[in-house]
């Protein structure tokens, strides 16, 4: 399993592609929003939590179709399905690799972009924490969506259509944590719920995703 994780990370770094693209997208969005909304600090600060979360979510979405599609095309997925590692673990590892190359870097650059968007100082730590707790859910849910559409020739758009509604609870709780943090309100409940979604998704969705892959390989 470690081998699979290391291979996926090596592939992500060598081909560049999705990894850098998501970050660049997140960065561009955070630059474009003030240009569109106007430089007024109060307005920007108020919408910053939502914009940052939506940006992270869309950046995650960009590279989802690569989770399984590349392995499907070159036959690796067939071979992984007959390998001794259970397919559920393959899904979990691939979601983890996706998170390490998208969710984690997004989390790390988010405070910098928060400054661009005039996020109130109290919000930064909660922005990082909420992304840290929430982006794993985005990767796992995305891996499930990618598993559903892996056999399809033009699955990319469909993948977004399937995954976006599933992202709703994560987005709501994630944005809520940052908003409340920025306004100095109590945020224990949304934070706990956000963590619960990530943990629940990580525990259960690999099973659904693995059965979807089995169906698609059939």
């Amino acid at each position: 399993m470690k081998a699979l994780l290391l291979r996926d990370l090596a592939l992500a770094f060598r081909s560049g592609g999705g990894f850098g693209l998501g970050l660049a997208f997140f960065f561009l969005l955070s630059v474009l929003v003030p240009l569109g909304v106007g430089p007024e600090g109060g307005t920007l600060g108020r919408i910053a939590p939502g914009i940052l979360w939506v940006g992270a979510l869309l950046a995650c979405l960009l590279s989802l179709d690569r989770i399984f599609a590349l392995d499907f095309e070159d036959g690796s997925l067939d071979l992984l399905a007959t390998a001794p590692i259970p397919l559920e673990a393959v899904v979990a590892i691939k979601a983890l690799a996706h998170w390490l190359v998208t969710g984690l870097p997004l989390t790390l650059i988010a405070p910098g972009l928060g400054v661009f968007l005039n996020l109130p100082p109290g919000g930064h730590q909660w922005l990082v924490l909420s992304l840290l707790l929430g982006t794993p859910a985005l990767s796992v849910i995305g891996a499930f969506g990618a598993a559903l559409t892996v056999g399809l020739r033009r699955g990319g758009l469909l993948l977004s259509l399937l995954v976006l509604p599933l992202y709703v609870p994560t987005l709501i709780f994630g944005g809520e944590v940052v908003r409340r943090g920025a306004e100095g309100m109590a945020l224990g409940t949304p934070l706990a719920l956000l963590a619960a979604i990530s943990l629940g998704a990580a525990a259960l969705l690999p099973f659904a995703a693995a059965s979807a892959i089995r169906v698609n390989l059939r």
Partner: peptide
């Protein structure tokens, strides 16, 4: 398909 990764 051989299941090979061209960058490895």
């Amino acid at each position: 398909a051989d299941g090979l990764k061209s960058t490895l």
